[in-house]
Amino acid sequence: MAAKAASTPTTYSPSPTTQKTKPSFFKNDNVDWVRPDGRGFHQCRPAFFRTGAVNAAAGSAYAEFGNTKVIVSVFGPRESKKAMMYSDIGRLNCNVTFTTFATPVRGQGSDDKDFSSMLHKALEGAIMLETFPKTTVDVFALVLESGGSDLPVVISCASVALADAGIMMYDLVTSVSVSCLGKNLVIDPVLEEESYQDGSLMLSCMPSKYEVTQLTITGEWSTAKINEGMQLCLDACSKLAKIMRSCLKEAASASED
């Protein structure tokens, strides 16, 4: 940092929140370190959902987990493009984009294509595609602010938006990730924790059906650790589903009045 300060920058840029070097407390497994936002290791950020964020869409939802803020809008079912072959089941089309101001450094969001295909895989197992043959449902997710665990938030928010659009699903899809930092597993990591992580596990599931729709693991894991991580995620997913459900119920009762 000292070297950076010495050279006079031509344009102003905010100091990046993610430092290059690992803070010492992450290194030492024996020390009880505190997470950047003061949460317990197994404590999620407060979640907030609201439906009807976009008027033009068939259904939409806004989600906020700490600093992570996303909007998902769902269009359709509408006619598939002419070039598409006939299909007796419906199609799902997912697209995740980051706003240019989502990250501390402008325009450096994660790989959008990767996120889009991951979102597609997480949702396709839950949607009853046979209920809208020959047509396409488009899911557009926009990450307004990237504050860590972006993809899990996008997935959960998308399933609320799909429910708001009245697309038939077997169950809501909820998603939670854990990061492995040394010996510890921390749930719902923030951006800072994600940048030091030794490994990550993201699980999407249908809590009432008790089925996993997507699971990705990076880094080196033992089976016991995978077990522990999956259990943590499954527990958190079922709690998250309650919050999502209450948001949908609120919206439904409000529209009745």
């Binding site: 895989k121 396709e124 996993v212 699971l215 990705t216 693991i217 880094g219 894991w221 033992s222 089976t223």
Partner: peptide, 9 residues
Amino acid sequence: HICGLTKRG
């Protein structure tokens, strides 16, 4: 040890 895992649709 598991080094990575992806569920593929």
